[in-house]
């Protein structure tokens, strides 16, 4: 019904598709073409290798956990930044993009410097039995770091434009703060939170630069999947490297589609509430 009221369908979709084909699909086709070089047998060997599996598990498991952590922390942080006024708020707000602006290697080196046994925080944490640097926990930390801006920056504009009158109405009807938040605000934020989750997840899965400095990189323990790709490249084995890249891409795509489905479902569920 509303479909033809607004113009620009052909132009915007046409432009989007052309650009996507040129910048994304064509290069990925080149990757798939290279990956096909290892054949079925090569793929089978890749998947039966416990080392590959454990690296994939660390990359995907770590990224999932990191994305979940980011959603929770990101929601709290964005709420405070958007809804409250306190000294230093603008500075903290500006710092949110820092994990993007710092080259990943610098982030990795800085995080390791802080959490290593002789680091600013590490010297307090390690005696408590919390080892962060050179363990899978360090991998998780780096992934939270690189994915953090996604959640805050996607949530921020939505929370800013969220009309307060709904909340006010709920409050005037006697709802408590917690009730208003859980029943009224949260449902409208869920689709956006899922977007942030998906972006943070996708970023964490492929992250290399910051993770390798803090991970320890011990095979079967703290070795991430992108490191395996780099090792294949060092052997001039482009085909296997591409195949690993495609496998990781397919997995994350699957997760993204899952999140998108969930998002549609929650949006339908959220609609009556608003």
């Amino acid at each position: 019904m509303r479909r033809r009221v607004l113009p620009g369908f052909g132009l915007s979709l046409g432009y989007t598709l052309t650009w996507l084909c040129l910048v994304v699909l064509l290069p990925l086709a080149a990757l798939a073409w290279k990956a096909s070089g290892i054949g079925f047998e090569g793929v089978a060997r890749l998947f039966t290798s416990p080392r590959t599996l454990s690296a994939l598990k660390l990359s995907f498991g770590g990224a999932l956990l990191a994305a979940m952590a980011n959603v929770v922390i990101g929601l709290v942080v964005t709420w405070a930044l958007v809804r409250y006024r306190f000294p230093g708020r603008r500075l903290l707000d500006a710092l949110i993009d820092l994990p993007f602006a710092l080259p990943t290697a610098v982030a990795g080196i800085a995080l390791t410097a802080i959490y290593a046994p002789n680091g600013w925080l590490g010297q307090w944490l390690v005696p408590l039995g919390i080892k962060v640097a050179y363990t899978p926990l360090g991998v998780l930390l780096a992934m939270v770091f690189v994915g953090f801006p996604f959640v805050v920056r996607t949530l921020q504009p939505v929370l800013q434009s969220l009309e307060r009158d709904v909340e006010e109405a709920a409050e005037s009807l006697g709802a408590t703060g917690a009730q208003t938040f859980l029943r009224v605000i949260l449902p409208t934020l869920v689709p956006t939170l899922l977007t942030g989750f998906a972006l943070s997840l996708a970023r964490g899965v492929g992250e290399y630069g910051s993770v390798i400095f803090i991970a320890g990189n011990i095979p079967n323990r703290s070795e991430i999947a992108p490191l395996l790709i780099v090792q294949r490249l060092e052997e001039f084995d482009y085909a296997t490297a591409s195949a690993l890249g495609i496998v990781m891409l397919a997995f994350s795509l699957l997760l993204l589609v899952l999140v998108a489905t969930l998002q549609r479902w929650t949006r339908r569920w959220a609609e009556p509430a608003t």
Binding site: T112, N118, Y134, I212, F213, G216, I218, L227
Partner: peptide, 21 residues
């Protein structure tokens, strides 16, 4: 006896010299 496998020589030096590993 190797607790950390850095990807490059410089990283390993840093791990040893600056991180005290």
């Amino acid at each position: 006896h190797v607790p950390v496998l850095d990807t490059g020589a410089r990283g390993a030096t840093n791990t040893f010299a600056q991180r005290g590993m």
